[in-house]
């Protein structure tokens, strides 16, 4: 059920990506997709009543392994978030250029490639 909600979030983003005409809305849609994927990975790695995967001084190693949530998805998601920042910047840069050149961010008007 948790997973389903995360999936729903992903498809809301996908819907925005597919249907919205404004490029800014499309960027937002992609951001939502990215959030959903990150969230999904963390959800999969969650242990009920789990603790962060950080060993504290004096903590028993065996207890730590039993109680900790899965650290692997966290390591992947951490970089994914920062990559997301880079991607947003790239997309915004492209949109700025498009707006400057064509005076619009409406996809339906950007059809110079029409056959």
């Amino acid at each position: 059920m948790m997973y389903l909600l995360a999936l729903l979030l992903l498809f809301i983003g996908l819907y925005g990506l597919l249907v919205k005409r404004s490029l800014v809305k499309k960027i937002l849609g992609l951001l939502i997709v990215e959030h959903a994927v990150n969230l999904f990975l963390i959800l999969v790695g969650y242990r009920s009543d789990g603790l962060p995967p950080i060993l504290l001084p004096g903590e028993d190693a065996g207890e730590f392994v039993r109680a900790s949530v899965d650290p692997l998805p966290q390591a992947l998601v951490l970089t994914s978030i920062v990559i997301g920042l880079g991607l947003v910047m790239l997309m915004v840069a492209l949109s700025l250029r498009i707006h400057e050149r064509h005076g619009t961010l409406d996809c339906s008007k950007l059809n110079r490639l029409k056959g």
């Binding site: 800014v24 960027i27 937002l28 951001l31 990150n38 963390i42 959800l43 969650y46 242990r47 789990g50 603790l51 962060p52 995967p53 950080i54 900790s68 949530v69 966290q74 998601v77 951490l78 978030i81 920062v82 997301g84 920042l85 947003v88 910047m89 915004v92 949109s95 700025l96």
Partner: peptide, 26 residues
Amino acid sequence: LLGAPDIAITQVVVEVIVVTVLIRAT
């Protein structure tokens, strides 16, 4: 809440920058 404080910190700050950039751009 999900036991991922590393990511929580990163997410907060990234979101701040993303929103700033998006607002300034839009």
